[in-house]
Design a protein around this nucleic acid. Structure first.
Lengths: 205, 205
DNA sequence: TGTCCATCTGAACATTGCATAGATTGGAGA
DNA sequence: TCTCCAATCTATGCAATGTTCAGATGGACA
């Protein structure tokens, strides 16, 4: 427990502390293990304190979701570019699924419409920017215009391309690989077999 | 409100009544609108009564999930078979996505690992049987053995084929179409454009 | 008819998110 | 440096939720 037992009455940067604490809780105990009071106690603060910085639980979790999208975007941006459209698109898809597999709690969070304010402009912006690189890879492959940052609009082809990785990611965090493969590492087996299969079928090199 | 104000002290078939009530609540108010007490009141029964028939909330929701998979399986089985593998596979995928679009609350339920007992043998059996037809269509297309009902094992190719529809379904119930398409019927637009695109790309006729 | 036990009630308890009233204090302006 | 205000935090309470449990009820079966 960080606890962060502070000396002064005021915390100093409670807003950030709550986001970090919430992320840690979700990472270790999953979204279902998260409670607002737990995040407050983790930050060494009373249960009512968070309401002064966020619009309820949904507001705090939306902030965590934004942070998660920023991390996802950073990881996708860090992936190498080969210059070959099909190869790059496959790399992005694999990165997307890998992120979900390694961060199941946070990935579940960003898909929970009931826990997050999907109408929040900052959230919409973050979710779009995280997939910009992915969108560009898809655009390059399909020979279409890249996604428009200002209008936040993806082309149908890009939406289609993303659905594949999105479906694989969900199947991973729903634990389907364990039901499908009786191996020591079901998730690894699933990614190594299913992903190349469908991506090769969709976008042959 | 059905209320189902009964005359006798004993309900008669509370187990079924609770499942039906829960399904109705989820259908109208979503998974997040469901509470065990609400289902009890809906069935005209005290808050403690359900515990005599189900292993807590998770037990009841697992029963609802089983019922949902049975309906999904029935709908997929009712879809026509053309004899052409690619066509049939596409029909199954479209049926899968359509079910999710028309039953968003119930589809969310069957993907909520935290609300359902995924280890329940009856649930595992139901989830497998619902996708048997889909698996057969994929097997026919890929020229592989059909799924084994006894061992409950899908082939990697089938898992891949299902991921596409699964991803589209999730994007639909997560409200992505509304963010992607500025039309009167975003979901319809999404299905009509994105699904054919990716399925045509994956399994050309 | 009489007994048994599955079924259901009603009341409790801990936990949750949230609202509100009051305490504390950092810091801007005099 | 001093004053005072607004932001911040505490403490308390409230309604709702899932769950448990002692006791009431009555159907099934001998």
């Amino acid at each position: 427990m960080s606890g962060a037992a502070r000396d002064s009455y005021h915390h100093g940067d409670l807003k950030t502390a709550l986001i970090v604490a919430s992320e840690e809780i979700i990472r270790t105990e999953g979204v279902e293990g998260f409670t607002l009071r737990k995040a407050a106690k983790f930050s060494g603060v009373s249960p009512g304190a968070p309401s002064h910085h966020f619009n309820g639980t949904k507001g705090l979790l939306t902030a965590v979701a934004i942070r998660t999208f920023e991390k996802l975007g950073a990881e996708l941006n860090a992936l190498p570019s080969s210059g070959r459209p099909a190869q790059d698109l496959r790399t992005q898809a694999l990165g997307y699924v890998t992120f979900a597999a390694l961060n199941p709690g946070l990935f579940r969070l960003i898909c929970r419409v009931d826990l997050i304010d999907f109408k929040d402009p900052a959230f919409m912006q973050a979710s779009f920017e995280a997939l910009t690189r992915y969108g560009h890879a898809a655009a390059a492959y399909f020979g279409q215009e890249p996604p428009d940052v200002n209008k936040r609009v993806f082309r149908p082809h890009m939406a289609s391309a993303m659905a594949t990785a999105h479906g694989l990611a969900h199947m991973v965090i729903e634990g389907r690989p364990a039901l499908l493969f009786d191996t020591p590492d079901p998730v690894g087996t699933f990614i190594e077999t299913a992903l190349p299969l469908i991506l090769l079928a969709t976008w042959p090199d």
